[in-house]
Each structure stands twice: as structure tokens, then as C-alpha cells.
Amino acid sequence: MRARIALAGALAAALAGTALLTAPAATAAGPGPDGHAGTKAAMEAQVAKGVPGMIGQVTEGRRVWRATAGVGNLDTGEPRGAGDAFRVGSITKTFVATVLLQLEAEGRLDLDDTVEEWLPGVVQGHGHDGSRITLRQLLNHTSGIREIFEEKEFRDKVTGPGFLKHRDDTWTPRQLVRLAMNGKPTFEPGTSWSYSNTNYLLAGMVIEKATGKPYATEVRRRVLNPLGLRHTVVPGTDHRIPGPHGIAYSKLLVEKPGTEVYDATELNPSLAGPAGEMISTAGDLNRFYAAVLRGKLFPQRQLKEMLTTVPVGAEAPGIRYGLGLMTQKLSCGVRLYGHGGGIHGSSSEAVSTRDGRHTAAFNSNADWTGDSEPVVEAEFCG
């Protein structure tokens, strides 16, 4: 994922998916007879710029369009499959927010409850105070809680050469939050906005506390199974990507010229946990975001809460963040809702119009190059 917002360094950006809706400087070629020629051309342009391969799927009502560009394997030249599974990174956050909104609708928690009420003693130290932070502030990143990627011990193990030694390590959300507490908050709760993966590690812990079951179980029971998202999984510590998939090419989230490219297809996804561990397909993501925006997963009151947004700052004018969902108006006036996500060897974006009728999801099997912005512009503005 390419960063357009000043997050906590390049690694945080790679797992955050916070700025994939910014409008590009120019729009790709307009659509041809099938309505998606411009989108296809924009995908091919990304491959020409160095992306190994890209896949995309668009749904408009009952019409579905699929396309691939480039390859899934640089050694064999095998193309990517339109139905390939891939790691979705921070798109996981929309699933987590959905479950918390469902729990609120059931009266099992309130988004204005404090973190301390649900996780006593977890958020404290170096100025952190969970009694002053609400669950809502976790979901919209206004908590001020320190980003886990600012912690050197963690960063050294999941980026650069350290990743190769520690890719099989298992991390728990509680362990990661404890590391994040080693530094000061970014700001006073509710006074600003800053993307922090730590927020969603905590959100997953709250789900477990409220239900007595792991957040992954609740995501499957409440979202994946009802929607029939058969190709979407919450992998936990499973290193593999189930089903057909290409190779995930990574420069280990180190943006330096000449950095070697590695196969990062298999890794222990607990390094991301509720902040970014999930695996899906373009088709499943389109179905999910359509269901969210049509209010099929929770009452209208909760949908309104999800769509109540805050600005993300001067670094990304026009982008606003709700509860696990971003929104931005494109150059042609179309407003999109969705999320982006990046993790080792994978950059993804899933967006939709407000009515859920026009959805699009794209993935690149690389983490150091590629830009989905022109592709999205071509699809919705071309």
C-alpha cells in the first residue's frame, strides 16, 4: 500500500491502508464498449510501472466484471487468477468495526463506553489512560493511542532482515498492546486524528471480552457465514493462503533503492491480528462492502454511526474516516466508501458507492510499488 498520510513511518503505512482513496493527478483512459476498458488500461499501466500482477473485480447491480494484469509468479510467468485469494491487510478493520456495531445494536456494549471499562489496566503507562478513551475513538482513530509500529522491538522483527528471522513468530494482541504502551500517546484523546493499528488490536480484545469468544469466531459467525463469504478467512496463526493464489512479493516494507525482493506469501499473520490479518478475494470483498452500505449487517442507527466521519488531516485533504470505513469524493464528484490494506507482499483496496450497487476491489501482489488510485478513478470516473 502506498502511503499518502504521514503515519508512523513506512511500515505503519504498509499495514494501515489509510490513503488509498486519494484522487490521482490524471484520469486513465475512458471506458470502451464493455465499460471497463479504462480500468483495464489503468491496471496494465501499474504492471508497466513495476507491479508483478494485479487483479480486480467490479460489480454493478447483477453485472460482474473481472480482470487480471501481469503475473502471479515472476519465475514461471503464470498469470494471476481473477479469483485469487490474497491478504487484505487493514481491510480487516471494517470487519472488526462491523462486529462491534452489531454488539452495540444488541445492547451488549456502547461505543461511548471507555476502554478501561472493558479492558481494565490494559491501556495505561507513559500517559496512556484507558478511562479517558472510548470504543468509538478506537474505531475512528481519535484515541491518540501509540501506534505499535513505533515500537522498535516490534518494527525490527517485522521489517527488513528481521522479518526473515521472525516471520514464524506468534504475537498476541495483548502482547502487542503492551509493547505499544512503552511510549507516550500521540495526542490527548479526541483532540486529533492519527492512524494506529493498536486501536484495532484493542477492538478485537473488546469483542472477546464482550462475547467470551475470540474476535475471529464472531467475525465468522456474524459476517462471513451469513453473507456466504466462503473464500474469506481469519487465519490466526496459519501461515498459508488457502485456495488459488499468486506469490506475494515483498521488499520487507523497506523503501530503499535496490532492496531485494522476497517471497512473503507465507507468514504468521498474528503480527497483524485484528488490525490486518484477514484473507479474502475481490468477489467476497465486493459482496461484503455492498452488504455493509445497504445496512444488511446492522440497523440504520449503527450504519449512520459508521458513516459519521472525521477529517484525517492536512496531509490528505478530503479523506475522512468513520468507524472502520473511509470516504472521499473523486475528481468527477463520485463519493466512495471503503478501505485499503497493505501487508507483506500485498496491497489491496475495496470501495463502493453509497448505495452499494457499484463496488470494486483490487489487489497487487507487491508491497513496494503500485498505486490503485488511477485504477479507481478510471473505474468510477472514466
Rank of each mutant, 00 (worst) to 15 (best):
T191Q: 09
S192E: 00
W193C: 00
S194A: 13
Y195V: 03
Y195A: 00
S196G: 00
T198D: 01
L202G: 02
A203S: 12
M205S: 03
V206S: 14
I207A: 02
I207P: 13
T211K: 07
T211N: 02
G212L: 05
G212P: 01
Y215N: 10
A216F: 04
A216N: 00
T217E: 14
T217G: 00
V219R: 06
V219P: 04
V219H: 05
L224I: 14
L224E: 11
N225M: 12
P226Q: 07
P226D: 10
L227P: 09
L227S: 07
H231C: 07
T232R: 12
V234K: 06
V234L: 11
V234F: 02
G236A: 06
G236T: 09
D238Y: 08
H239E: 11
I241M: 03
G243F: 13
H245Y: 06
I247Q: 03
I247L: 15
A248P: 06
Y249D: 05
Y249S: 12
S250E: 10
S250G: 11
K251L: 00
L252F: 07
L253W: 14
L253V: 12
L253H: 15
K256C: 05
K256M: 01
K256Q: 15
P257Y: 05
P257C: 01
G258E: 09
T259F: 13
D263W: 08
A264G: 08
A264T: 02
G273R: 08
A275K: 08
G276R: 10
E277H: 08
E277K: 03
M278S: 07
M278V: 04
I279F: 07
S280E: 12
A282H: 07
A282Y: 09
G283M: 04
D284W: 08
D284K: 06
L285G: 15
L285V: 11
R287S: 10
R287T: 15
R287I: 05
F288C: 03
F288I: 01
